[in-house]
Design a protein around this nucleic acid. Structure first.
Lengths: 270, 270
DNA sequence: CAAATAGTGTCTCTAAGACAATATCAC
DNA sequence: GTGATATTGTCTTAGAGACACTATTTG
């Protein structure tokens, strides 16, 4: 019988058809919008990064950042590389949301995609150098159910993308969707975004991912705003503070210059 | 400029290197062991399916069932096909636990694997026709931490596999592991199994996946035993019943022939 | 001082955990 | 009857949600 070395030397993976593999990333951040009233805190919007396609297929449509997996890297490294290239910011987290492999999902051929959720923080020093490319833009997200339909709306200035989906399956904490109308989104990216939002909101429930949206030091109100923005809910400050009390620790510093009482800055407790 | 049809006609995915893609599945079931005491209920063991490798590489080692993704099927279809082939039972659930793509994970070359957890029920009529192949065996699982090490033990009669892992990262509800010692497990399958157990236990917390281990009708004690076996915990019957009360509905039937008070049979509430 | 956010105290209600007590069948 | 599981009731405690109240800054 053949020994292991001989076997491996003669093994030909290339004899069988293989798919191309990509990583697509749904990059989220909180966009802060200042108000005219100097007393009021800025309002936060959950937004995600899309890139306008400059080539076929789906020319002119909007797509998730992503790219092909190369030999010698893991899919996570591939995803991180793509996020860094598009945002020039180190992402604070990366969470896989599954492999999208339905035949026919990409007109170029047999291409399957591992999708990720990535969160980047709003670091004061590093003011979102993101939009290097004029074709990469941050879109404010809204995702709500209307009867048994789910409406995904993405807005950037006067650009409005509206996709319609329906629930396909809901198990193990996350929901998967079927596309009814992709709007101006390329490929099956409407579905990936919907699933990413479902996974993000699910993680935000246990206060895990919400820290990733903020700099190292933050006020409890900022933390609360992140959770409310991400999950599209609103909670009472007193209750929120109690729930996160064990997840944070105080620093000695306070905010300054707001038109109201200063707030103590906190750090995440390890 | 080229139109979309011309572009796609001339597109050559084959010009770039592509990995081979597999689905590996961690198939769980509850194995019931009768006791000598006619009054006592049988004890349940969480067990998983392994296949003894009959070829290189890892000849003679134990590996997860799995196979290569073919063109024209999704990765979920591929995984379901493999489970059916190995167990001749329709799995009750299938949950993706991520893409394993670290360079070097397979000595045959560039092979990446999407791993799944699958649960098959203990249906009374369909008595585990599973072990067609003499090289496919069900192993009882134990997975516990010992300091910062995690010990994975798989037993089948006198076959004992012992792997050692350490925690790599714990986020978003699941934990990932690094292999210290694979024991007699092939490839990176010790890591996949550890992650599968983490995902399974996480799902069992909210009483979702535990129904998949049982036939359509079951007693509340059976349901409780499944949760205790899967999560390796023990809870008081009174409290368990209260927690699942809204997830089940009564039937008119009772168990018979046990050496003690009969139990009402329940169904899962949709 | 007015407007806004920061922060604390406390009441109620629900759910979880612990434990006691009763019910019912097969041998 | 005995020994096992089945099933219900209730006490206590922890946590979530609601709400009232006080504190502090800047223009």
């Amino acid at each position: 019988m053949q020994n292991e070395k001989d076997f491996l030397d003669n093994y030909r993976l290339e004899d069988y058809p293989r798919p191309s593999v990509t990583a697509d990333i749904v990059v989220f951040k909180i966009r802060s919008q200042k108000t005219e009233n100097f007393r009021k805190d800025p309002k936060g919007y959950l937004s995600l990064l899309l890139i306008k396609r400059g080539g076929h297929p789906y020319l002119g449509h909007w797509a998730l950042p992503g790219g092909f997996l190369s030999q010698g890297e893991s899919i996570e490294e591939c995803a991180l590389r793509e996020v860094r290239e598009e945002t020039s910011v180190e992402p604070a987290s990366l969470m896989s949301i599954g492999l999208f492999s339905e035949p026919g999902r990409d007109p170029r051929g047999w291409i399957i995609s591992n999708a990720f959720v990535s969160v980047i923080g709003t670091d004061k020093e590093n003011q979102q150098s993101g939009d290097d490319a004029a074709d990469a833009q941050w879109f404010d997200v809204s995702f709500d159910s209307d009867g048994d339909k789910y409406i995904l709306e993405l807005c950037r200035g006067d650009i409005k993308i509206r996709a319609v989906l329906e629930e396909k399956q809901s198990r193990f904490g996350t929901t998967s969707y079927r596309i009814t109308d992709s709007g101006e989104l390329a490929f099956d990216h409407a579905r990936i975004i919907a699933q990413a939002l479902s996974a993000l909101r699910n993680s935000a429930k246990d206060f895990d991912v919400i820290f990733d949206f903020l700099p190292e030091r933050f006020t409890l109100t900022e933390l609360q705003n992140v959770q409310e923005t991400v999950m599209n809910i609103s909670v009472l400050p007193a209750n929120f503070r109690r729930k996160v009390a064990n997840l944070v620790e105080e620093t000695d510093d306070y905010t300054e210059g707001a038109g109201h009482r200063p707030a103590k800055l906190f750090k995440r407790r390890k």
